[in-house]
Design a binder for these strands. Structure first.
Lengths: 252, 252
DNA sequence: GCATCAATTGAACAGTGTTCAATTGAAAAT
DNA sequence: ATTTTCAATTGAACACTGTTCAATTGATGC
């Protein structure tokens, strides 16, 4: 039998609980710390238990039936309280920008956990519901309803959260060395007979890639690219909102 | 020692190769088929070997040093030949639409493999280089250079590929039943004292979610939402291209 | 002092990725 | 015709994983 309640009960504890008292929240926090430190692929329930000085079964008792449940709890912890990051007085387009900047900032605080958040976005745990509500409310203020609301919502969530998922996706461990080495190696691999056009374009392509700094290095930032994406999306949605109100004047 | 070459050699085989002759391509295809059939989380190298009637070590010999390498090969196979899906005569904005629709279609043919593609997007294997080149060439025709090119490229790739990654992300296995059950259960879980506003908003929110059909069921499609996102993005980028050419008239 | 029961234990099961010294057997060399 | 070569495969082994479960602990309420 496992602890069922999501929130830690403040009720008086009995039995061994009062003495040792490992909390569900402590387990989740330790898991987050461990993933932050050593990466998601190096994370295991057994090592988590080891680092807590505890038997692996304890994790299950505190967190639920499976590793997925722990991941869900982690995602809920990280994206919790995100709706508070908006100014209720601001116009709806501005509120959307604030909320999505807050989402990106929250995920960037735990880049190694990013893959989990993308997957957990569909679970709609309670912790996420309020910030989903925030997005929906802003779009509602913009006049969106029905299919138009669905598309605007999906475009925003999918495009922006997807961007963050992509930018933080772990680059595969480089086989032998630097980015330059890998690119020139790839270039050498291209079969000139089968793909003459690609072969001809490759030097130019390599230059472009260097310009773009499409790599996972230390000095690379996607901040400006995200701002551009956010601007384009909110702008396009505002335009659609305007045409919507022209076509359907004040339904309901 | 493992087979190093990416492409299967057409050179005459010696030794046992000619008799049994399991190909690297065959291994990759079998892996794709298995992930398509049983899902990514149920996939293992051992069962892949089992289904091929072969020892697990064979996979390593054919595909390289680790499971990651197999995943890279799978991603390359699926996104290979994507650049061909464009009409060179069309204007650059239209070419971008064609290419990204082709990307989405290719990933939708293997929804279970989608998580791999998002991660593997940063590896820039040769198979992907040509369609990345396609995107870059279209943007170049639109007049983008330097930081503006980087941002337009990142916004497109991140937003659109991210959208596809998000829409195909596997929803966590529903604990007890239908979507409606889960939503009403979540609603019951919300602490009315701690979150009175959220509690009050939940019925409306639930309605909205039902309208949006934000679920992973059979009859749900993100086709229109993706089209909306694509329209907004390409439109916004076209606008930026126009302002670019005003500011920097024909540099170079 | 006793029963309760939240919290923990330790052992076990089935399965995983990965490595490696052996082995096969047809093609090439002699 | 025999030997050598070596691509391809094997089977066993190692260290590890997620998960389950019957036991055990020990402070609290009775």
């Amino acid at each position: 039998m496992s602890r069922l309640s999501e929130t830690d009960t403040a009720k008086p504890l009995r039995g061994r609980a009062a003495a040792v008292g490992l909390t569900r929240a402590q387990v989740v926090e330790a898991a987050i710390a461990q993933i932050d430190a050593k990466g998601l692929s190096a994370f295991s329930l057994r090592e988590l238990a080891r680092s807590l000085g505890v038997s692996p079964a304890v994790i299950y008792w505190h967190v639920g039936g499976s590793k997925e449940d722990l991941f869900a709890a982690i995602a809920a912890t990280i994206t919790g309280g995100l709706a508070a990051a908006q100014d209720p007085q601001a116009p709806w387009t501005e509120r959307l920008k604030q909320v999505f900047h807050a989402y990106r900032a929250a995920v960037h605080r735990h880049p190694n956990i990013s893959p989990l958040l993308g997957a957990q976005m569909k679970s709609n745990g309670v912790a996420n519901l309020d910030w989903i509500e925030t997005v929906l409310a802003a779009l509602h203020d913009g006049g969106f309803e029905g299919a138009a609301l669905r598309d605007a919502f999906n475009a925003l969530i999918g495009g922006l959260c997807g961007f963050v998922t992509m930018e933080l996706a772990p680059a595969p461990a480089s086989e032998d060395g630097s980015w330059e080495n890998r690119i020139s190696q790839r270039m050498a691999e291209v079969d000139a007979e089968a793909y003459p056009l690609t072969q001809a374009a490759l030097p130019q392509l390599a230059n472009r890639i260097f310009v773009l700094r499409w790599q996972n290095g230390a000095d690379v930032s996607y901040d400006e690219s995200f701002a551009v994406l956010l601007d384009i999306l909110i702008g396009g949605i505002a335009v659609r909102a305007a045409t919507l109100s022209h076509k359907e004047p004040a339904h309901g």
